Amino acid sequence: MAATANAKQEVEQLLQQLPDDATLEDIQYHVYVLEKIKRGRADIAAGNSQTTEQAREKLSRWLNH
């Protein structure tokens, strides 16, 4: 989806890509995933991310406590 598209345009594009028999639950799920991807990309652009190794180390500390 285009980076400059507004939320309504993004949902319209999403709806065009889904099959005609998509349920409301399917649509909600895809909108949810789309939003999570956008937030993740924004976090990465802002430098708020970790390497896989950093994430493994953090998870290891959580699991060992």
Rank of each mutant, 00 (worst) to 15 (best):
H30P: 00
D26H: 01
Q50H: 15
M1R: 15
I27K: 00
E25M: 05
L14P: 00
L34E: 04
R56W: 12
A5F: 06
E25W: 00
H30E: 15
D20L: 08
A22L: 01
A7L: 11
Y29L: 14
A42P: 00
V31T: 02
Q54D: 08
N48P: 03
P19C: 01
Q17K: 09
D21S: 05
E25A: 11
T51K: 03
D43H: 12
S60V: 03
I44C: 05
Q54T: 02
A55N: 13
A2C: 05
L34G: 02
N64E: 05
A2S: 09
T52H: 04
A42S: 13
A46Y: 05
Q28N: 14
D43I: 03
D43P: 02
E25N: 03
K38H: 05
N6A: 05
V11R: 00
R56T: 12
S60L: 13
A3E: 11
A45C: 07
Q50A: 15
N64G: 06
T52Q: 14
A46R: 11
S49P: 01
L63F: 06
Q9N: 04
D20E: 10
Q16L: 10
E25R: 04
W62N: 09
M1C: 13
W62Q: 12
N48K: 13
L59C: 07
A3C: 13
A7G: 08
T4K: 13
D20Q: 08
L15M: 06
N64A: 15
P19E: 00
L14K: 00
T4Q: 15
A46V: 01
E57G: 01
T51A: 04
V11C: 02
K38Y: 01
R61M: 11
A3R: 10
W62S: 08
A7N: 11
A22D: 00
L34W: 02
Q17G: 04
D26I: 01
L15Q: 02
R39K: 13
T51Q: 03
R61Y: 03
I37Y: 03
R61P: 00
R61T: 05
G47K: 04
E10L: 10
A2E: 12
Q17R: 08
Q17E: 04
S60Y: 08
V31I: 11
G47C: 07
Q28D: 10
